[in-house]
Amino acid sequence: MGIDVTELHIDPELNDALARQRTVDHIVHTLKQLPDGWIVGFQAPGFRPLSAGSGAVGPNGSWNFYVRYWVWGYDDMPSDDVFDMFTETWDSWGWIDSVQSDNPRKRSAYGQTPDGYRFDIRRGVHGGVSMGWMSPYYPASGSAYGGVMPSIITKDGPQSYEQPQRE
């Protein structure tokens, strides 16, 4: 996501379970501002499955949590309009840092929430819209959670925890 780890700090109050829950909270809060029927999840129709994870990648061996989801359920709306609705919502909250298009067939935007969660949204070459969320870093001692992330989220919250089938 183009993040400079020298700018990051370790949140001593955060752990894996809280990072996962707060990520879901940010996604649900966003979806509540958007049209009904939109879905965020690991396995969008016609696209490869995405996933979540964490790792010892931060300062002083700290960990963070990262998840990438597809967006679907917007029927015949052009994916550029979906991308714009997300970025306009986040920008109205002061969360967007930049919107880029390094390739005329792709678009991306990057931002950060007030509590330090970084995110991006991308409209890919084939029209799919995906988003990634990365938590602030937390002490490695808070990383042994092992919980799963919802596989489908709507504005009403998590709808499924059934993980996608990978071949």
Rank of each mutant, 00 (worst) to 15 (best):
D81L: 08
Y117M: 07
W133L: 03
D81G: 03
R107M: 07
N103R: 09
R107G: 00
P104I: 06
W95H: 11
A109R: 06
Y117W: 13
E88F: 02
T87C: 15
G124M: 07
A56E: 06
V125Y: 14
G94T: 08
G128S: 14
I96S: 01
Y74E: 02
S135H: 03
D76V: 11
T89M: 12
Y69A: 04
G142N: 09
D97Q: 13
G94H: 08
M85Q: 11
D120A: 08
S62W: 07
V125L: 14
I96V: 15
T89S: 10
W70Y: 15
G142Q: 01
Y137S: 09
Y74W: 12
M77R: 15
S135C: 10
Y110V: 08
D84T: 06
G53P: 06
Y110A: 07
T87R: 04
W133E: 01
R107C: 00
W63M: 14
D76G: 12
P104F: 08
S98G: 05
A52I: 02
V99I: 15
V129H: 03
D76Y: 12
R123T: 03
A52Y: 11
G94P: 06
Y117K: 07
V57K: 09
I121C: 05
W95P: 00
A109P: 07
S141T: 15
P114L: 12
Y137V: 03
Y138L: 07
T87S: 10
D75V: 06
Y138E: 07
A56R: 10
K106E: 12
G128I: 02
A56G: 00
K106G: 00
